[in-house]
């Protein structure tokens, strides 16, 4: 079924069309949600909440753009709301709680798969995780992130740099560890 027809049917409230749209995007969107949360259950919670928003606000979608991008944006927004709402994330989202890390401009080569990379990003404090995902992966501007997280734009800049440095350090450690393990097996 064509996307246009699919959307029309979804707007008419046809369950089958809604399920089809969900199936088309659910896996990719769970990947997005996974990067923002700390567990697969939380990621599924965000996915669920996000898709409910998608279907209830579908009439607001202007068909000029890509539906995938629109759904992705909803997922990202839902994830940020989820992080701010839940105690286990809320604590980590507070900037005061985070130890400041030195800034690094290194550009290490990434030698791991997407899942491993996502798991490494998820090891960052929640606020670093969110800021890094928003800027590095989603391509948001600092100003947008500032508005989304309700923090100062300069803070966003500095936190992103620290998040990046922390990730680089973790990647270095993980990749070194992997190489060691590999070497050990040989």
């Amino acid at each position: 079924m064509e996307t246009t027809q699919l959307l029309t049917d979804c707007l008419k409230g046809k369950k089958e069309a809604q399920r089809q749209l969900y199936q088309q995007y659910a896996a990719v969107m769970l990947g997005v949600c996974y990067r923002y949360t700390k567990s697969i259950e939380d990621a599924e919670d965000v996915l669920q909440e996000g898709f409910i928003k998608v279907f209830t606000h579908l009439h607001q979608f202007k068909r000029e753009g890509d539906i995938g991008a629109w759904i992705r944006r909803i997922m990202v927004n839902t994830a940020i709301t989820y992080l701010n709402k839940h105690k286990r994330y809320k604590k980590e989202m507070g900037l005061d709680e985070i130890q400041l890390h030195p800034i690094s401009d290194e550009n290490p080569e990434i030698k791991m798969g997407a899942k491993e990379l996502a798991d490494t990003i998820r090891q960052l404090p929640a606020v670093y995780q969110a800021i890094f995902n928003l800027i590095a992966v989603e391509g948001f501007e600092h100003k947008e992130v500032s508005q989304l997280l309700n923090i100062n734009i300069n803070t966003v800049r500095s936190q992103y740099s620290r998040a990046r440095a922390m990730l680089v350090a973790k990647l270095k450690n993980n990749q070194t560890g992997e190489i060691r393990n590999y070497a050990g097996e040989i």
């Binding site: 896996a27 990719v28 990947g31 550009n107 290490p108 990434i110 997407a114 899942k115």
Partner: peptide, 18 residues
Amino acid sequence: GKFEKDIEQQFSGFSLVP
């Protein structure tokens, strides 16, 4: 930068089955 582009590329097809 290059690092960010690499990461974005890595995640371009990343999906998990719910």
